[in-house]
């Protein structure tokens, strides 16, 4: 699936920042990934280990935080957080409206890295 292009992008961004900050080794990378992404932590790390070989980021640990799925009510604008697997037959708890829009849960965001 598309783990490789996503991981390649993470590595490119990290190496770019490593160069700008003149670091010699990246220890860990903090990521925020939306819960709707089907990419599993274990596989992301394995792919990362594979493509980062021989770079400054070789051996870096991915610290992945999942950002929750948040829907917004089209009627009263209430924001409703929920688990990805629970998106079944939802109504707004505030006003009972059924028209909801996804506002968070699909991002791939690199927050920071620890390096020396």
């Amino acid at each position: 699936m598309h783990e490789l292009p996503v991981i390649q992008s993470i590595l490119d961004v990290v190496l770019n920042h490593a160069q700008m900050n003149q670091v010699s080794k990246v220890h860990s990378i903090a990521l925020a990934i939306g819960e709707l992404s089907d990419l599993q932590d274990e596989w992301l790390q394995r792919y990362f280990d594979y493509i980062s070989e021989g770079t400054l980021a070789e051996g870096a640990r991915l610290v992945i935080e999942r950002t929750p799925v948040v829907l917004k009510c089209a009627s009263c604008a209430k924001e409703i957080p929920m688990k990805a697997g629970e998106m079944k037959d939802i109504v707004c708890p505030e006003c009972g409206n059924k028209e909801l829009t996804l506002i968070s849960g699909r991002e791939y965001f690199i927050k920071s890295m620890e390096a020396q």
């Binding site: 992008s9 961004v13 920042h17 670091v23 690199i110 920071s112 890295m113 020396q116």
Partner: peptide, 17 residues
């Protein structure tokens, strides 16, 4: 040896796309 430091990145992975 340099100290380990925290570097802020704040980039969206899919921003190029």
């Amino acid at each position: 040896m340099d100290e380990v430091r925290l570097i802020e990145i704040k980039e969206d992975i899919l921003s190029d796309n």
